Amino acid sequence: MLIFLLMTTIFLGCLYFWIYFREPRTLWLGISFFLFIGSALFLLATFLISVDQEAPLYIIAIVLAFGLLLFPTVMIFTFLFNGVKVIKNEGFHFGNILALGFGIALFIYLTFWPIQEDLTNQTLLNSFYYFVSILVGYFLITLNLYTVTSLLNVWHLYKPKVDYLIVLGAGLNGDKVTPLLAARIDKAISLYRKNPNLRLIMTGGQGSDELVAEGVAMAQYAIEQGVPEASIIIEDKAINTEENVEFSINLMDTMDAKFAIVSNSYHVYRALIIAKEQGYKCSGYGAKTKFYFSINAFIREFIGYLYLKRKIYLIFLGVITFLFLILNLLPTLLGYYVEYFVH
């Protein structure tokens, strides 16, 4: 048994690293990571039992059980607290209520919704409850995989060799970079100082409320921080991430140049996915962002990812919906038909 588990863990570990080094911009990276860690923990538990060392196993089991029970409460509190904080600090508009809305929805689902399900004897309502449970579970599993995969894509086991850093724009305050955008540029500058041969591409067009193009303001900020003007390339036409990547690549000396994308940590993975969809191989670096802002922004990025991959998820949800209707609602409807029309 131990030999089998050991071989399984080694296989899953090799699978994880194969995906990581070959193409990490996929949720399969997160799936393989969870399988590897889960297999390693199961191997450890089996080993402890085989050598009559149940005490550490009990401690681990208690910690895991406590963590699983506490996790929903911590998750709800985190979203609610940071949702209120982002509205207080950044203003009230739709883009800033995502974390708060998600926290409220999760609270209702985990508290009032089960009570309602227990109190009703309505078969159709119960069936709808189970259907919603499947969708919520699917959504949360996908969110966890997206979160882990995003983190793994900004934690580098080795330093990727690149020729260019594409620094994504993020809006200006007049003609000056905002603290959010400054964090991205500072991250790129820290990488540049470790390798002065890098070229920094500052990319971003001019918005209706901006005095200059984002790329121009970003370049000016970098020059003020001591980066030579010769090491900076300005891209001043892009209005979204897709154009940021495409237009920046057109400014490189060769189309096969190696590059990395620099953005805030919550945004890097979706930017990498966009580059992948465009057919470009690259890596990413994440800049630090205030935690309360990152939570809300990460939800927004996840929604953007679902939209980007909407065909896959709509097909999957369609199959789940069809199977659920066939397996649950059809017998119920047939029962009503027999009760009211046959008898």
Rank of each mutant, 00 (worst) to 15 (best):
L151S: 12
Y146H: 08
V148S: 02
V167T: 06
K159F: 02
E117S: 12
T149G: 00
T123N: 13
L151W: 12
D175V: 02
V177D: 02
T147V: 08
S127K: 13
T120W: 01
F139E: 09
L119W: 08
S150V: 07
L125W: 06
H156F: 11
G174Q: 03
I115L: 13
L124H: 11
F128T: 10
V136N: 13
V177C: 07
T147Y: 13
P160F: 01
N173S: 04
Y158R: 15
L119Y: 10
L125Y: 09
P179S: 03
W113L: 10
V167I: 15
L124W: 14
T120G: 01
S150C: 10
A170V: 06
Y158C: 11
A170M: 07
T149L: 00
T147Q: 06
K176V: 05
L168G: 06
G169C: 01
I134S: 10
L145N: 05
S133W: 02
V177K: 00
I166A: 09
T123V: 13
L168R: 09
N153Q: 12
P114K: 01
V167N: 12
Q116K: 06
I166Y: 08
T123A: 14
S133R: 03
N126Y: 03
F128I: 14
I134N: 10
I141T: 14
D118F: 15
E117I: 06
K161C: 05
P114M: 00
E117V: 09
L151F: 14
L119Q: 11
L119R: 04
T147C: 08
N121Q: 15
I166V: 06
I115V: 13
H156I: 06
E117W: 13
F139V: 05
V154E: 13
L143P: 04
F139L: 14
F128R: 11
K161A: 12
L172S: 00
W113I: 08
Y146S: 04
W155R: 15
K161L: 11
Q122H: 14
T178G: 03
P114H: 00
E117G: 04
N153D: 09
W155N: 14
S127L: 14
E117K: 11
Y164R: 02
D163Q: 10
G169I: 00
L152H: 13
L157Q: 14
Y138N: 14
P160W: 01
E117L: 10
I115W: 06
Y130F: 15
W113S: 07
T178H: 02
I141N: 08
I141Q: 07
Y138V: 06
L124Y: 14
G171F: 01
Y129F: 15
D163T: 07
Q122C: 12
G171Y: 00
V132K: 12
H156T: 08
L157G: 15
G169F: 00
V177A: 03
G137C: 11
L119E: 11
A170E: 10
N173T: 02
L140K: 08
L157M: 14
N144K: 06
F139Y: 10
Q122V: 05
S133M: 04
T149R: 01
I115Q: 05
Q116F: 09
G169S: 01
D118T: 11
L119K: 04
L140V: 12
V148A: 05
Q116P: 03
E117D: 06
F139M: 08
